[in-house]
Design a protein around this nucleic acid. Structure first.
Lengths: 232, 232
DNA sequence: GCCTTGCTACTGGTCGGACCACCGGACCGG
DNA sequence: CCGGTCCGGTGGTCCGACCAGTAGCAAGGC
């Protein structure tokens, strides 16, 4: 009880409706959307609200708006940004396993690369923070607690890589991951998770051994992928 | 004469103005923006236009809008998406070298990883396309031509990795890169570029040798970084 | 017959003014 | 001190009007 109450604005709902139509394939790339005035009539809302929804879709890279001409649907995989990921993962309520696997593969690449960068340039403060997280991971028991700590470890690693562009990517990934965190909790179920790789990585970073650090985090990520795949 | 006339909508200009204030640091994280009504008065435009601009900033992750409360500036590096990259690269007309280097480093990681994936799973069609691009790179002369071909090579590699999440990332990176392509043309000036690494990579992909493919593309990317750094 | 020109009916863009929903602080009574 | 109530200000939605740009069509010229 006391669960969060949904309160979405009109514009939000329209944006969601259109987004699902596009991502779900009911509207194809190149198709022209009805005019703003017609959408307003059909949804029985004001044109301003429709406009607001359309601007959001445009910011997501899902449609192309041109004054005087029709608003057209763009090809999702060619022009959409990372923000649409949550909707690709779960179109029509069913999880798209292939996309999840793609995401986890990228996670493996990022983890390994960040660990390598961290080993090359991390300072004592960062190493200490990673060390604390690794220790906490060794002691934590509940899967959700492990998941949170592991995510914190990931973020700390990204920050310690010192790459600000990667930081921006991580921001988007965080939103996606947090929205679907229960999908990935399987990676932390009894026995599926072992903090050994984290301890190894921290030791390697402290010893300034990039290769070993990368290998440890890659091993961790691959173990996670295996755990998720097994569950399904 | 008859040069192209700038035609940006009112909302666009307001969004740019506010974006620069935020990215440039004149508005700090946590600061409250003036109300929509006041912004409308100050800019001498309609409130609708201000709203449209604010929604765009929200989509970029630069501000947080809450009904009943003030619209507040968010921490760029904590919540912004990749879309703001162009403005981080060139705040106030001066190029931020550190960000450019971060971007090129990530490019190196992506290139290597894509080449590896491609070697593991590319089909004959893709290999043939990469082969054509590598040949064209060997023959092209002008830097801008080389740049375009190299970018095509990168995109083809991303597609052949088969990872759709990476594809979404590449979409955003493409917009950033294309907006600043002149900045990177130095990588392709006389003598700075050699198609040898591309030929190696294609050969390795065809031979299904992931390690060699990754090494070849990493070498190419590192050479590019060196060329850019030297110019400055 | 073909191309050009200009009209026209549509599209999105901006305007202003009104009212609703919501938040936070000031104020008041218990 | 606590809980309500009120009120000013904020964003959210609505309406109806006009401006600005596009695309297609139809009359005119070659």
């Amino acid at each position: 009880m006391f669960e969060r109450i949904e309160r979405k604005g009109v514009a939000d709902q329209i944006a969601s409706s259109l987004r699902e139509a596009i991502v779900g394939g009911r509207l194809r790339a190149g198709d022209a959307l009805p005019s703003e005035r017609e959408l307003a009539t059909r949804y029985e809302v004001n044109r301003s609200s429709v406009r607001e929804a359309l601007r959001r879709l445009e910011a997501w890279g899902l449609v192309e708006i041109r004054q005087g001409g029709a608003t057209r649907v763009r090809d999702v995989l060619v022009s959409a940004g990372l923000q649409v990921l949550p909707y690709l993962i779960e179109p029509r309520g069913r999880v798209n396993r292939a996309i999840v696997r793609d995401l986890l593969e990228l996670r493996a690449m990022f983890l390994a690369w960040c660990a390598q960068s961290a080993a090359e340039r991390a300072n004592a403060t960062t190493v200490a923070r990673l060390d604390r997280l690794a220790k906490a991971l060794s002691e934590a028991r509940s899967p959700s607690e492990l998941q949170q700590l592991d995510y914190d470890f990931f973020e700390t690693l990204v920050k310690s890589s010192g790459n600000r562009v990667l930081l921006l990517m991580a921001n988007v990934v965080r939103e996606v991951y947090m929205a679907h965190r229960e999908r990935f909790v399987a990676m932390y179920a009894d026995g599926a998770f072992d903090a050994e790789h984290h301890r190894e990585a921290v030791a390697a970073i402290r010893a300034r051994n990039p290769t070993a650090a990368a290998a440890a985090m890659r091993a961790h990520a691959l173990a996670g992928i295996a755990a998720v795949e097994e569950i399904r």
